[in-house]
């Protein structure tokens, strides 16, 4: 991807919370509104230097995944025809992860303002948990049951049909 003018940046360096550095192509970085905003700000100032963007909330494991997603979507950004292929890729991409990774990815997508990844993760988690029992949900999300047994029984009785 050629730069439109000599003053614009072609690459940025992103730093994860555990201090690993990632060199990211501008087009890929633009998939994240947070990174895009940083780049735009620097370009306005007319800086030619490679800029460093620290992401204090994202570990390198997760950042690698976010960037993998951004790279794929940047490739497809100009191509409307391969929507189906991209959807398939998205699905395969998320299928590999456990819930802990999915949750971290969701929060990273939220933090980095990558709306499409956030939507994708939320929908994927929702689809995979919708038929689970309450007990399974508590396990997956490591949630402590803070109801008394009586309270829990009352809620179940009130809507017995939803627990079938």
């Amino acid at each position: 991807m050629a730069s439109s003018s000599s003053s614009s940046l072609s690459r940025v360096v992103v730093k994860s919370s555990d201090n690993n550095l990632f060199v990211v192509n501008k087009k890929v970085a633009s998939q994240s509104q947070l990174l895009k905003q940083c780049i735009d700000n620097m370009e306005e100032k007319g800086t030619n230097d490679v800029i460093l963007i620290p992401l204090s909330n994202v570990t390198s494991n997760i950042l690698t995944l976010v960037l993998e997603y951004c790279e794929k979507h940047a490739d497809f950004a100009d191509d409307d025809n391969n929507n189906q292929e991209l959807k398939q890729w998205d699905h395969e991409f998320l299928k590999k992860f456990d819930y802990a990774t999915l949750n971290s990815l969701t929060m990273a997508a939220d933090y980095m303002v990558t709306k499409s990844l956030l939507n994708l993760c939320c929908q994927f988690i929702a689809d995979s948990i919708k038929d689970l029992t309450v007990q399974q949900i508590r396990q997956i999300f490591d949630i402590k049951n803070d109801f008394t047994p009586q309270e829990e029984a009352d809620i179940k009785n009130e809507n017995a049909w939803a627990f079938r």
Binding site: M107, D110, I129, V134, R138, A162
Partner: peptide
């Protein structure tokens, strides 16, 4: 654990029946 914002985003994509069941998660 999901943060509340992300949790809301996930829950907003669930069918009603699941949500009613999940009122007794916590």
């Amino acid at each position: 654990q999901l943060h509340e914002d992300a949790l809301i985003e996930v829950l907003a994509r669930l069918p009603v029946k699941s949500l009613i069941r999940f009122t007794c998660v916590c």
